[in-house]
Design a protein around this nucleic acid. Structure first.
Length: 865
RNA sequence: GGGCUCGUGGUCUAGUCGGUUAUGACGUCGCCCUUACACGGCGGAGGUCGCCGGUUCGAAUCCGGCCGGGCCCA
């Protein structure tokens, strides 16, 4: 044990946190392949390496670290890997910005090198924050998706899904961002409100309303509702498209809303998702009027080369000139945009690669996973239910995993590399064998690359070593922690891929955390100026305070508002705990403690039973990932039970030098040791620091989770009463304008059982205290009756009111000694025990005393003259 | 328009498979520098638990409707 005078007066988080950060070793957190302990593998989210670990990440990682540390203490072989999801557009855009280039100004290889370089720099910066936050990362299982080691696994998964028929290529309409020049998946489409114009014009004699006149060249049909009398005559006819002159059929479809516009709509390839539906349904022509850059194609005739906006203006002008534009109306509209650049997306028909979505097997696997909180499963169900198209996985970009496929230049046959030859960039290398179909050795490598979700959706397969021979040795993982914003992407794609590649669910449990909102209650954003970065909090209050905010800010799973108050309160709790540590050390070094001391004093028994209750509650909460409940219970025990009540009760005894202090020393040590262990997952630096003073050279993080139990119902009840008696006496002093340490004279406590308080009560309230079990010899009168409504209501139901009236009508003697039955509404009814308690007022003969009652305990106070 | 979720003192929040006086923090007011702690202790004030209706002896809690936030999706 370290001497108490070596403890600094104040807790210096900056010094302590840095010291332990430099002391702890990475190896202590490594997953042990040879361990016999049960495994607990965490499918940690690989963040996008922006260079800044933001507060949302911090919350997510706090949760992970809480249970990772808890599970280690509970005897699990924990893997807490750290991944980095590198590929994708944001980095490409950043590289273009920083170097003042566009991707086409340098070679693909050079551009990739620039992206890798930036990413490495960003990862290095983020690792520093992770370490400062004291996350118990398993750095031996770090993965970086842009490395050949990782993306060869992405490619392997691609080849296997290609072989099993999950992956196919096809020409199909896809969401396309013409600014980024790439296809995107539905999950990457966001929706913005905007106002547009609905244009009514003459279409070969019929009025049609459209918001997208520029697509006239791509018109392939006119649709009307089958029951719309106005257009019966058009059935089976064809019509001539104005300005362009090609003929299109008239089709009938229930989905046409006769009340919208003129009730007749033009179908174009493609204005929106509905057009795609109709196009498939009615087997219509394909007319591509917009190219990958968002410009009009040759099919648009004289409008060729214009962008869509210019084309719209030109066509409307021409309509006006021809006199066929009837009128224009304003229309509120939701438009799909690229999540990254906010450019409105186009639906283009393209040859792309797709992954088959099989809703049933995804639903089945999703239901085999335990969701925390449970209702988050609904989001997955709803998303899977409304999937219409397969997942488009090809992207026309550069910084991403290459699609490992070649096509024969002669016959078009597809060739793939052997699994052992991965990774592979087909744009740089050639297949090892000639074309199987025609024998040619001339190949063209696929230039498209993979959606980054193809990388990250195998994170769990990667950490469980799925690519090893045979069955994945560690698969499935135990838990996936993630935010609810990416349920429809990361969680969805992971389940899909896991089922496709292994036939099984990816994890046993999924823990979904909420979003972090700014102090003003809104989503953090640059424009609102409400962004809080973890580094700010680390500098001002330290990692432990930030971690406490993460645990206590809100119930697990709900959105959490950032609040400096919570951080300040967390830091104050540490100050309080620091002082408890100093007190414990000062007391324990006086004579140590003996594990075999018999605990007899009520206060000591009470502390131990309350500790036991707390440990049980905290353990239950940890098992359910209710970190707010767990930390709240710990804080309450430390501050309220231990510091404000227990220590106040026994400090007088501890100051003495006789044998009566031994029990208090043991109780104090037990509580303090347990607190350090329970706090270890939440505030690892602080818990380590406190623990180290009592146990030099030992780490609290290598200790098992607390298992202390203490069963003593009487101590719980009597101790609570004792605490209340002290509180009542303090209030009495307060009400009588007495100082809290004012001497009180003789105080008699009449309790139902004899109590051994070792003199604690008398010293605490500064009085000459006498405990008695006999009945107080006082004149008393009944002033009121307390009913126990939970008993009365359950027993009498409708007659509860009548019962209470009947009791009030009893004589004082009957109230003190209740009869067996009571007459309610004229019926003799059994009188249940505990239905009511009479309230008495007491007077002692002659002597002037004040009387306090606490439950069934009576306290008389004879004031000192 | 649909789905999910939330609405509790000035602010944030616990409680939500009904049950005695609705939890805690911050703020606020009063008293107290008691040998761990004034970054503290003790005590107080402050709430028609969004609104309306229903079920019940009893509703913050269950049911229905409405109003208002947030998120996801059409």
């Amino acid at each position: 044990m370290v001497s108490s005078d070596q403890l600094p007066k104040n807790y210096d988080f900056a010094e302590v946190e840095e010291r332990w950060r430099n002391t702890w070793r990475d190896e202590d957190n490594f997953f042990d392949k040879n361990s016999k302990k049960p495994q607990f593998i965490i499918d940690t989210p690989p963040p996008y390496p922006t260079g800044n670990f933001h507060i949302g990440n911090a919350l997510n990682w706090c949760y992970i670290d809480f249970f990772a540390r808890y599970k280690r203490m509970k005897g699990f072989n924990v893997m807490f890997p750290q991944g980095w999801d590198c590929h994708g557009l944001p980095t490409e855009v950043k590289v273009e910005e920083l170097n003042h280039i566009t991707k086409n100004d340098v070679s693909r290889e050079e551009f990739r090198r620039m992206c890798r370089e930036l990413t490495e720099k960003n990862i290095a910066a983020m690792r520093i924050t992770l370490r400062k936050m004291a996350f118990s990362t398993d750095w031996s299982n770090e993965y970086i998706t842009m490395t050949p080691k990782y993306y060869s696994k992405t490619q392997l998964s691609f080849l296997r899904m290609l072989a099993s028929g999950y992956i196919y290529q096809s020409e199909h309409p896809v969401n396309y961002c013409t600014r980024c020049e790439t296809a995107i998946a539905f999950a990457e489409v966001s929706y913005d409100d905007r106002e547009t114009q609905l244009n009514y014009f003459d279409f070969d004699g019929v009025e049609i309303a459209t918001t997208r006149p520029e697509l006239l060249a791509a018109c392939v049909a006119v649709a009307v509702h089958p029951n719309d009398d106005r257009y019966h005559k058009l059935k089976g006819k064809s019509m001539k498209v104005p300005l362009f002159g090609h003929d299109v059929p008239v089709v009938q479809d229930e989905a046409v809303d006769p009340a919208f516009g003129s009730g007749a709509v033009m179908i174009c390839t493609f204005g929106d998702k509905q057009d795609v539906h109709w196009w498939k349904q009615h087997n219509l022509d394909l007319r591509k009027a917009i190219d990958r850059q968002g410009r009009m194609t040759a099919i648009a005739g004289k409008y060729q080369g214009l962008d869509t906006t210019a084309c719209r203006t030109a066509i409307l002008d021409d309509m006006k000139a021809k006199g066929i534009l009837h009128r224009q109306e304003k229309l509120a509209q939701r438009v799909g945009t690229c999540w990254r650049c906010k450019t409105p997306i186009e639906i283009l028909s393209e040859r792309q690669w797709f992954v088959k979505i099989k809703p049933d097997e995804i639903q089945k696997a999703a239901h085999q996973i335990a969701w925390y909180p449970e209702h988050m499963l609904r989001r997955m169900e709803n998303w899977v239910d409304q999937m219409e198209w397969d997942w488009c996985i090809s992207r026309q970009r550069i910084f991403a995993t290459p699609i490992p496929v070649w096509f024969c230049k002669k016959c078009g046959e597809m060739t793939v590399p052997d699994e052992k030859d991965l990774p592979c960039d087909p744009t740089l290398t050639k297949p090892k064998h000639p074309c199987k179909k025609c024998g040619s050795t001339e190949f063209e490598g696929e230039v498209d690359v993979l959606d980054t979700w193809m990388d990250s959706s195998i994170s769990v397969l990667n950490v469980t070593h799925w690519d090893g021979s045979g069955k994945p040795p560690y698969f499935p993982a135990q838990i996936r922690p993630q935010g609810h914003d990416i349920i429809r992407t990361w969680a969805f794609y992971t389940i899909l891929r896991s089922v496709a590649l292994t036939g099984s669910k990816p994890w046993d449990q999924i823990l979904v955390n909420g979003m972090v909102l700014g102090e003003d209650g809104f989503k953090m954003s640059k424009s609102r100026g409400n962004i809080i970065v973890p580094e700010d909090i680390l500098v001002k209050y330290g990692a432990d305070a930030l971690r406490q905010w993460g645990a206590m800010g809100a119930a697990t799973g709900s959105d959490i508002m950032f609040n400096w108050n919570d951080v300040v309160a967390a830091s104050r709790f540490q100050t309080k705990m620091w002082n408890i540590t100093k007190f414990a050390l000062i007391q324990l070094e006086k004579g140590g403690f003996d594990k075999n001391t018999e605990i007899t004093a009520l206060a000591d028994r009470w502390l131990l039973v309350r500790l036991s209750d707390t440990i049980e509650a905290v353990t239950t909460a940890m098992e359910e990932y209710q970190f707010d409940v767990a930390l709240k219970a710990i804080r309450e025990f430390a501050w309220d039970v231990l510091a404000d009540n227990y220590i106040e009760l026994v400090k007088g005894r501890l100051y003495q030098q006789d044998g009566s202090r031994a029990g208090a020393c043991l109780a104090l040590h037990t509580a303090f040791d347990s607190l350090c262990r329970m706090l270890a997952p939440f505030i690892p630096y602080f818990a380590e620091e406190c623990y180290s003073y009592l146990n030099p050279g030992q780490s609290v993080h290598k200790q098992p989770w607390v298992s202390f139990t203490y069963d003593d119902d009487a101590a719980r009840k009597e101790g609570n009463t004792l605490v209340q008696v002290v509180a009542e006496v303090r209030k009495y002093k307060h009400d009588n304008n007495l100082a809290l340490n004012a001497p009180l004279g003789k105080v008699t406590i009449y309790a139902p059982h004899s109590v051994n308080d070792e003199g604690d009560t008398g010293r605490t309230i500064n009085a000459d205290v006498h405990w008695r079990t006999d009945v107080a010899k006082l004149d008393r009168a009944i002033t009121d009756i307390d009913f126990n409504r939970s008993v009365v209501g359950k027993t009498f139901r409708k007659d509860a009111q009548a019962f209470m009236d009947a009791v009030r009508a009893l004589s004082p003697a009957e109230l003190e000694k209740p009869p067996k039955t009571i007459k309610i509404n004229g019926v003799e009814t059994p009188l249940p025990a505990d239905a009511f308690t009479p309230k008495f007022s007491y007077m002692e003969e002659g002597a002037k005393v004040d009387v306090l009652t606490v439950g069934d305990v009576i306290v008389t106070i004879a004031k000192k003259e």
